[in-house]
Design a protein around this nucleic acid. Sequence first.
DNA 1: TAGATTGTTAATCGATTAACAATC
DNA 2: TAGATTGTTAATCGATTAACAATC
Lengths: 224, 224
Amino acid sequence: MSYTVGRGSQPEESSLDKPGEKLALGVAARLSRYLQVLTQARKIGKETISSQELAEYTHVNSTQIRRDLSGFGKFGKRGVGYNVESLVTQIRKILRTSGQHNIALFGAGHLGTAIATSDIFGDHGFRIVAIFDVVDDRVGTKLGDQVVRHSSELHDVVEEEEIVVAVLAVPASAAQGIADSLVDAGVKIIFNYSDALLNVPPDVTVHASSPAVDLLYALYFYLT
Amino acid sequence: MSYTVGRGSQPEESSLDKPGEKLALGVAARLSRYLQVLTQARKIGKETISSQELAEYTHVNSTQIRRDLSGFGKFGKRGVGYNVESLVTQIRKILRTSGQHNIALFGAGHLGTAIATSDIFGDHGFRIVAIFDVVDDRVGTKLGDQVVRHSSELHDVVEEEEIVVAVLAVPASAAQGIADSLVDAGVKIIFNYSDALLNVPPDVTVHASSPAVDLLYALYFYLT
DNA sequence: TAGATTGTTAATCGATTAACAATC
DNA sequence: TAGATTGTTAATCGATTAACAATC
């Protein structure tokens, strides 16, 4: 697994060498998108991928993709495309998310179980290091490789495991209470799967996923 | 439930009257986003919302929000904000998704169960009219208000119920096969929760959801 | 009235796209 | 070599933002 690219020439042209620079919102979003497809492509053993193929899967224009990538280095081979494995490594480096990140999961119901037993998070370097629930029947049972703990342990575990990200797979009624505890314990990113509107301090980011809304968007372009 | 807005003046200023016009990708995406927050706000009984509040929840600039909305009419009240209920109605009209839409769900495992028993889709006018699985033990059991059917019934049901959208909550190994059947039956939008890369004809849209990738994106802005 | 928030303008910045030479 | 695809330019379009008058 090599971290070097190209022929080592003109290092001053690569933004990878300027760790102070922050990516524009759009670039970061698209790079994440590429990473998603590249990870899937790697799983099925694809070795190279062209900007055209990436465009089909990500719905991002192929010129835009080449432009985004060439800003950080010459990752592709003309006439061939991009090496999937090395592009994954490069984008992770650009997004500074090459390492492992510890996350906590809340809720061991159907959604929580689905999340814990899939490798959607694991594939991207996220490790679920704690699962919480308040229902007594669920506490103590095993989910994936973790034993479900009671929410009362939350504060200690977050500190011990240095957890920055929490995923909420709980009913809307329980969401705000848990969010408050999480903020209190020092969690900075909350991924909210409930349909509750969460109130958090400005230094905490809430990311709300809404499949139905994505669907409305897709449907609009089908209908017009 | 009234569909009229304002005082009925200057109808030529409203793009709602130009059904031939197609929204820009960005506008449609943001309107969907607003709809998500508005729907949540409505659930907790919020009657009005300001562009500033919407901005906090959607991470879209408040000026941008006012600009997006004012392009379609004068929906707000100065000094007060926007009426939540009527803004939901307006945006649905703009996105042409005011009605009910029938969708089919594939997979009655943990994820499928979570989807079928939540109201994430119902809240946005999507009605799950059929649930399929291949596992015999699951076929015939009830999930939400539907009985799980065997995938072999797929073709007939899609035609009968006029289904345009299918949600895939199945293992990656099964995804492509089901996608092929869906395309064959005439489904035009596939919402893919598996981590398989799906190959479909150009007139079919695949929407791949990836929470982990969204998380990488959020993490980048936390780390920098 | 006073305070708040919309609707709108103007100026800047980033995204998008077509086109094509470079080169694998 | 011939075909394919990258890296890059240039031109256009849409997004972003600050500022502020209009007005609820």
